[in-house]
Simulated scan of single mutants.
Amino acid sequence: MAKVLVAYASLTGNTEEIAELIAEGIREAGGEAVLKSVTDCNADEINHYEAVLLGAYTWGDGELPDEFLDFYEEMEELNLAGYKAAAFGSGDTGYSIYCGAVDLIEEKLKERGAEIVQESLKIEYGPNAAEKETCRTFGRQFLETCAAVS
């Protein structure tokens, strides 16, 4: 089964929890999930995996958080053709652009040639009990979709 990088930026712990739950789902489906904060890795590390899930919380008016910016800029150097990918994150519907960082990440993945294999996962704040299972399901489905399209 696939080795998947799950890289995220989290300030309050909400996006980190989403990432952990997604990684659980990948492992439940028989995959290997490597969980890393974007502050502890660089975009080039994507090349060491078969698939990638990137996540961030949304800052301000739909922006990437500061700690994701270096990773995002490093992605400019990558050719992700053939990579399976998806995005996830947390946000606040009180802002005019809900989970805008997730959309920016997905667009960057597409721009660099990655194949987006499933719709982004967007969670308001941190996951409630039902959303925790949604996050695990997201991970399981990602791995299953990667296997199906390989």
Rank of each mutant, 00 (worst) to 15 (best):
Glu63Trp: 05
Ala147Thr: 03
Gly126His: 02
Glu124Gln: 15
Gly100Cys: 07
Leu53Ser: 13
Cys146Trp: 13
Ala147Leu: 08
Pro127Asp: 00
Gln118Ala: 04
Glu77Tyr: 13
Tyr83Trp: 11
Thr137Pro: 11
Glu77Trp: 14
Thr134Ser: 15
Met75Asn: 02
Arg112Tyr: 07
Tyr95Gly: 06
Met75Glu: 05
Leu53Gln: 15
Thr134Asn: 15
Tyr83Arg: 09
Glu74Leu: 05
Gly100Lys: 02
Glu63Ala: 05
Ala51Arg: 03
Thr58Arg: 09
Glu106Ile: 02
Val117His: 08
Tyr83Pro: 03
Leu54Gly: 13
Gly55Lys: 10
Ala148Val: 06
Leu53Tyr: 14
Lys84Thr: 09
Thr134His: 11
Ala81Asn: 08
Ala81Thr: 12
Ile116Ser: 09
Lys84Asn: 10
Gly126Ala: 12
Val102Leu: 06
Glu77Ala: 13
Ala51Asp: 01
Ala129Arg: 05
Ile116Arg: 11
Glu77Leu: 12
Ala85Arg: 04
Arg136Lys: 15
Lys108Thr: 02
Glu119Tyr: 00
Gly126Thr: 06
Met75Val: 10
Phe138Ile: 07
Ala129Trp: 00
Cys135Leu: 10
Pro65Gln: 12
Arg140Thr: 00
Leu69Tyr: 04
Glu67Lys: 06
Ala129Glu: 14
Asp61Pro: 04
Tyr98Val: 04
Asn79Gly: 14
Thr134Pro: 08
Glu131Ile: 05
Glu131Leu: 05
Gly89Glu: 01
Tyr95Thr: 06
Glu77Asn: 14
Arg136Asp: 01
Ile116His: 11
Cys99Met: 07
Tyr57Phe: 15
Ala101Leu: 04
Ala130Lys: 05
Ala147Ile: 09
Tyr95Gln: 07
Asn128His: 01
Gly82Cys: 01
Gly89Arg: 02
Gly126Met: 01
Asp103Leu: 13
Leu109Ala: 03
Ala114Lys: 05
Ala87Ile: 01
Val52Gly: 07
Asn79Thr: 10
Leu121Asn: 03
Ala56Cys: 12
Leu54His: 11
Phe142Met: 08
Ala85Gln: 09
Glu115Ala: 11
Phe142Gln: 01
Tyr125Gly: 00
Glu115Pro: 03
Asn128Ser: 07
